[in-house]
């Protein structure tokens, strides 16, 4: 089993964070993982993205070009840039709250999520990224949501443990959004 995921959005939406959580969760499940951030002269509000690979086998190139199995996009510039990076039959998970446009390809699976609204409903609009991650986990089953929650304090520190219930809820609601 292998998932090659691009997570993209603007700085502050937590795209690097959910990428790290996913990689860490994979490691906790004894899978091979890599997390490669885009880096450059970027700033708050600029674009940010990372490539995450979670696999049962050793990982070759950590760079995703046109072979992503899933792309999670939090804003419009990210969708414009990364839709083309999906392999055939890949999954495009779109934050419908901020992207009022349909995907252009018809050889991929597209999932529209009201991530910001769902996050606001459960009490914190900042959890929109976790809603998206929840949808991704439901669609791919690459790691268990429990592993992501276990990774939470490892990535963000013990003092953030109080946010785990909110984030658990966000993962759950994201999963619900893609369940038929």
């Amino acid at each position: 089993m292998i998932e090659k995921v691009i997570v993209a959005g603007f700085g502050g939406q937590g795209v690097m964070a959910i990428g790290k959580l996913l990689a860490y969760a994979g490691m906790l499940e004894d899978k091979q993982v890599s997390w490669l951030p885009s880096y450059g002269p970027e700033m708050r509000g600029g674009t940010a993205n990372c490539d995450v690979i979670v696999s049962d086998k050793l990982i070759g190139s950590p760079v995703l070009t046109d072979d992503a199995t899933a792309v999670i996009v939090m804003n419009l510039p990210s969708m414009d840039k990364f839709e083309s990076h999906l392999a055939k039959e890949g999954k495009l998970i779109v934050n419908k709250s901020l992207i009022h446009k349909k995907a252009t390809r018809d050889d991929i699976g597209v999932y529209y999520i009201d991530a910001n609204e769902i996050a606001a409903e459960i009490g914190n609009p900042k959890a929109a990224n976790m809603v998206m991650l929840g949808a991704f986990l439901e669609l791919t089953s690459i790691v268990k949501p429990e592993s992501v929650l276990e990774a939470f304090t490892k990535v963000f520190g013990e003092d953030k443990a109080k946010f785990i219930p909110l984030n658990a809820k966000a993962l759950e609601k994201g999963a619900e959004a893609v369940k038929n």
């Binding site: 990689a23 993982v33 890599s34 997390w35 490669l36 880096y39 990982i59």
Partner: peptide, 10 residues
């Protein structure tokens, strides 16, 4: 290189 410096692995 920049990639191995910036990326994360287990």
């Amino acid at each position: 290189d920049g990639m191995i410096g910036q990326m994360m692995e287990a």
